[in-house]
Amino acid sequence: MDYRIPEDVGIKSVREFYGTLKGLLEGDETVILDFSGLMSVHLSVSVVVMAAHREAKRLGKAIKLKNVSEPVRRQLYLTGFNI
């Protein structure tokens, strides 16, 4: 299932984002995170995505990323996410 990450996701909304992703992971085999419109992410968001990715792998599921802008790709790389 595709989930478009809100453009204003940040530290204030990270808990909500975490909850959403948790719900998605419980349901779908593959979760597609759409980063359209995002030019930057907060570390907390990036960490949630990374932890979710690790969890999906552990569960035999998958989290895929799409429409990742170059600045966000760089941020994810610095967070330890190899994409």
């Binding site: 530290i11 990270v14 808990r15 984002f17 975490y18 948790k22 992971l25 570390l43 907390s44 960490v47 949630v48 990374m50 932890a51 979710a52 690790r54 969890e55 552990r58 790389y77 610095l78 967070t79 330890g80």
Partner: peptide, 24 residues
């Protein structure tokens, strides 16, 4: 070179998204 230490990062269900667990 960049190495990110994620050893303190809890599993996803136990994660507190408002905490920073990483080291670089």
């Amino acid at each position: 070179e960049r190495a990110v230490d994620r050893s303190a990062l809890p599993d996803f269900p136990q994660l507190d998204p408002e905490k920073c667990y990483l080291a670089w």
